[in-house]
Computed example of a mutant assay.
Amino acid sequence: MTEREMTRLMAWSTELRRVHQRLRDALAVAQEAVSDGGPSDDATRDLLLYCHGFCTALDGHHRGEDRVLFPAIEAAHPHLGPVLRSLTQDHSMIGHLLGGLAAAVDRSAPATELAIHLEGVAAVMETHFRYEERQLLQVLESLELQDGVRDVLGPL
């Protein structure tokens, strides 16, 4: 295996960690916007932007994993099927929570309600990320994928 090939293989585990950190950062920005939000139109627009951006990024990440990454992992490591199904189930649960957050943002719910939604997403997201990293980082260091990072891990 060439050095370039090894770099790309190692990069999938690095890319996953980077994407997870960017999503954590985006969540923190959305949470800060909620805590700073007031009755002004500017605060409402900022809140809509940050929450919508976070929801879109997290959903895109999970769609990429479900569509490209997880099938490639299962093809190379069939014994990980139950882990991948559990992670996919988490994606569905997080999608449901994101739908609740989006609905609350769309109806201009009070900041306290939005904070509760974000807290729920944060708890499930962090548990999911930690489990995913424990189960898959080592596999990602040897996984051969020719797809682009955006296709595999989402538009971050």
Rank of each mutant, 00 (worst) to 15 (best):
M1G: 15
T2R: 06
M6K: 11
M6W: 02
T7V: 08
T7E: 10
T7P: 00
A11E: 05
E15T: 13
L16Q: 10
R17T: 15
Q21T: 12
Q21I: 03
D25F: 02
A26H: 06
A26N: 07
V29M: 04
A33V: 06
G37P: 05
G37I: 04
G37Y: 02
P39A: 13
D42E: 15
D46R: 13
L47W: 05
L48N: 11
L49A: 09
L49V: 10
Y50W: 11
G53N: 13
C55T: 08
A57W: 00
A57H: 00
D59F: 07
H61T: 05
H62S: 08
R63C: 08
G64D: 06
E65F: 05
E65I: 04
E65P: 07
D66P: 06
V68S: 14
L69H: 05
L69Q: 05
A72W: 05
H77P: 04
V83K: 08
V83N: 06
L84I: 10
R85H: 14
S86I: 00
L87I: 02
T88D: 08
Q89I: 01
Q89V: 07
D90W: 03
H91E: 02
S92E: 09
M93G: 02
I94R: 05
G95T: 07
H96Y: 06
L97M: 10
L98K: 00
A104P: 03
D106Y: 03
D106M: 06
R107D: 07
T112N: 11
I116Q: 13
A123T: 15
A123R: 15
V124C: 07
V124N: 02
E132R: 01
Q135P: 01
Q138H: 11
Q138V: 06
L140N: 03
S142L: 07
L143I: 00
E144R: 11
Q146E: 14
Q146D: 15
G148D: 14
V149I: 08
V152N: 02
L153Y: 12
L153A: 00
L156E: 14
L156K: 01
